[in-house]
Amino acid sequence: MTKILVVDDEPFVVKILEDRLKKSGLEVITANDGEECLDKALQRPDLILLDFILPVMDGSQAMIELKRNESTKDIPIIVLTAMPSRDGGKKFFGLGAADFILKPIKLDLLINKIENVLKKQEAK
């Protein structure tokens, strides 16, 4: 089963994403900060849905660490944030994000984007 790691410090965001993704037949693991994200990423999820403004370790540092680690560097990351990007997501793509999504986004569209990234990853 495809495994998604959802990382967000808003408990309700995590809960509703977890419930909705599970309804789409995906396995979900969760983390509430950047450090926990690094730990959970060792469980080799197929994709990480990462908020950027996070406590303990922010999304930017978490991405750097994920890309530095041999066992997590190939996991595609979708940055899902409520913080607008002034450079069209350039910063996130520069850090190795597979996609960048600004909240709020329709859940159906989010799932569509997750599927697209997973398809691209499979084709690699």
């Binding site: 965001v13 403004i53 709020p104 329709k106």
Partner: peptide
């Protein structure tokens, strides 16, 4: 923007 979008996201979802 961040502070407005976050609760709006959970409401919409």
């Amino acid at each position: 923007s961040h502070e407005m979008r976050t609760p709006l996201t959970t409401i919409q979802w």
